[in-house]
Amino acid sequence: MLRAPAHRVSPQAIGFWTVSALMGDAVLVGGAAVAWLVVPGAPGWVGLVVLLLAVVAVAHVVLMPRIRYRVHRWEVTDTAVHTREGWIGRETRIAPISRVQTVDSRQGALMRMFGLASITVTTASAAGPITVDCLDAETAAHVVARLTAITAATEGDAT
């Protein structure tokens, strides 16, 4: 069996995921509610559907970030990058550092407010990019520097 990667992501990620899920779900539920109110003669059961949607959205906003925080893990050893992610499903990705081609870090406006950054490590395969979501910005900078140093020292075209 595979063991879980060693490190959790930043605890700030829970806040970030909550806020971004809230924004997305609010638009969806709000849109549905407005449509229900505006369209004349909509039958009563449509209101129930909107209510159900709202309940599901609340559950999503409350539960998803906490489950995610328990699932998401990452680890960079001297030979490999290993991540686990997902909240309903699970996805484990492993790539040897000797095959890493690029190391990107990304920080959106909302992520910056929570002091977070994401790292994406790509290999020569379109199926193989590995993303470590929501590290705290300082850790992310360290990891990028370390990965860049290791990959710069690797020879060959990594295919």
Binding site: E91, R93, I94, R99, A127, A158
Partner: peptide, 15 residues
Amino acid sequence: DGIIGWVVAQSWWQR
């Protein structure tokens, strides 16, 4: 030798 990484994915049903 041409393998440059692994992905193990499980949907809820598969888990």
